[in-house]
Nucleic acid binder design. Structure first.
Length: 288
DNA sequence: ATCCCGACGA
DNA sequence: TCGTCGGGAT
């Protein structure tokens, strides 16, 4: 059934894929980055690290991870923590919604999954704050199973090597190549090597992800709502429940703007009004 | 000043 | 599909 050209391209692919994987493993042999969630692997440590790594670079996560593990050593401990406790440890990692997602994940793992992290990406994606990329990475890194997922390093490496002279490369195009390249015998190490090589590439050449169809530049932080949200969070962590007037005073922005931002944070389930005070939700306020 | 980065809700 | 969400490094 296969014509001459099909066979030609198939064998050509095999060769380039084989070379690529040989290059990867050679790179990894010399440049493997030690990380606490790689060197002592448990499903809990994998879940926590992957949520932290969603939008935060490795060096910043490295500084927080051990502290987080000391304070919340397992799902049981985390599931019983207050949102305020988790947010306090989370300080500095950014995107604070993730701290709440992580707390909810721990509660759901304990109560619905008997304390066991599901090994099915589709199931993991039903948990809050876990999308396709994180679901795949959890299954790969916790259970060493060959699941295909795309995140920034995968994207960077594959665009660089397999879409050399292309622009606007979509993830849809990357999936089939990734699927054929993935090492099904040692998927965990294979993905580790992709992560390390991708990070190396980021420093060595212009970011190939600029040629991804999904690449986007984010608005600047200084003067943004995000900055004010961060400051509101810090006030509440330092002062405890605080009157809206006091928050207005400390934030020093237009009242309407501060109110709008407070309203969003309440809407997201991070904060709540308690009489005239603003405070963090108690776990019982959102417990399943 | 610019760069980076996955999930979610509209 | 697009806008939003932090904060540190460079």
């Amino acid at each position: 059934m296969t014509g001459y050209m099909d066979e030609f391209f198939d064998s050509d692919d095999s060769v380039s894929i084989h070379r690529f994987n040989a290059m990867l493993s050679e790179f990894y042999l010399k440049n493997r980055r030690p990380m606490p969630w790689r060197d002592e692997i448990t499903p809990y440590r994998v879940v926590v690290s992957e949520i932290m790594l969603q939008q935060t670079q490795v060096p910043r996560v490295l500084k927080k991870f051990e502290e987080f593990m000391q304070i919340f050593p397992d799902f049981a401990a985390l599931a019983q923590a207050s949102l305020e406790d988790v947010l306090r440890v989370w300080q500095g990692l950014g995107y604070n919604r993730r701290a709440k997602y992580l707390l909810q994940i721990a509660q759901e793992i304990m109560n619905r999954w008997d304390g066991v992290v599901p090994d099915d990406p589709a199931v993991l994606q039903t948990l809050p704050g876990i999308g396709a990329a994180t679901a795949g990475s959890i299954v790969v890194f916790a259970y060493d199973r060959p699941v295909v997922f795309i995140e920034t390093n995968v994207r960077r490496v594959f665009i660089h090597h397999f879409f050399q002279d292309r622009g606007s490369v979509s993830d849809k195009e990357i999936y089939p190549v990734l699927n054929r390249t993935l090492d099904h015998t040692h998927p965990r190490d294979w993905y580790y090597s992709i992560m390390d090589y991708g990070t190396y590439l980021a420093g060595a050449i212009e970011n190939p992800n600029r040629r991804s169809r999904h690449y986007a530049v984010q608005s600047k932080f200084s003067g943004s709502d995000r900055e004010i949200r961060g400051r509101i969070l810090k006030i509440l962590l330092d002062e405890g429940p605080t009157a809206v007037d006091i928050i207005h005073q400390k934030i020093q922005s237009e009242k309407e703007r501060t109110d709008r931002i407070l309203g969003q944070m309440i809407h997201e389930g991070l904060l709540m009004r308690d009489g005239s005070l603003i405070r963090f939700l108690d776990s019982k306020d959102f417990f399943l």
